[in-house]
Computed example of a mutant assay.
Amino acid sequence: MELKLNAESFDEHQMILIGEIIDRVKSDLKLAGVKDEQLKEMVGNIAFSIATTLDNSSTTEFDGVVVNPYLVFQTQDNELTHCGGNSYMHEYVFGILDEVFES
């Protein structure tokens, strides 16, 4: 596999990923009985926390070991695509959250 810089493809993939995270968190919280505005607020907060961790927007450390994630996606062409820096999917959380809760 070859690592390729492709910001457009990367952007599309990270929107799909955070959308899937939002859908799964929403489903699990609904099963737990969370409803209405509380559901949307909790889904948004959890998804944002996950996204900022993956984006390396917040420090991730355990037992003195700092972890710096760098997100890449494997495309259908068997390439690894990246954006040339840290991901930024946390910027999409609340827009996608609104779309998910409108449908």
Rank of each mutant, 00 (worst) to 15 (best):
Q14D: 01
M15S: 10
M15E: 10
I16Y: 07
I16H: 09
L17T: 06
I18F: 05
I18W: 03
I18H: 03
I18K: 05
I18N: 03
E20M: 08
E20I: 03
I21D: 04
I22G: 04
I22F: 09
R24D: 08
R24N: 14
V25E: 00
V25P: 00
K26M: 05
S27L: 08
S27Y: 06
S27N: 06
D28T: 08
D28V: 07
K30T: 06
K30M: 11
K30A: 07
L31Y: 08
A32F: 07
A32M: 11
V34K: 10
V34P: 02
K35H: 11
D36R: 12
E37Q: 13
Q38D: 13
Q38E: 15
Q38R: 14
L39S: 05
K40D: 05
E41R: 14
E41V: 09
E41K: 15
M42H: 05
M42W: 04
G44D: 06
G44E: 04
N45W: 03
N45M: 11
I46A: 04
I46Y: 04
A47P: 03
S49H: 06
S49T: 06
I50A: 02
I50H: 01
A51F: 07
T53I: 11
T53Y: 06
T53L: 13
L54M: 14
D55Y: 09
N56I: 02
N56G: 10
S57E: 14
T59R: 15
T59E: 10
T59A: 13
T60S: 15
E61A: 15
E61K: 15
F62W: 09
F62Y: 12
D63S: 07
D63K: 09
G64V: 12
V65S: 15
V65L: 15
V66C: 10
V66D: 06
V66T: 14
V67C: 13
V67P: 04
V67I: 15
V67W: 12
N68S: 03
L71Y: 01
L71T: 03
L71N: 00
F73M: 03
F73Q: 01
F73N: 02
Q74V: 09
Q74L: 11
Q74G: 05
Q74T: 06
T75F: 01
Q76E: 09
D77H: 12
D77E: 14
N78H: 09
L80Q: 01
H82F: 12
H82V: 07
H82Q: 13
C83A: 12
C83F: 02
C83D: 02
G84H: 13
G84I: 13
G85M: 09
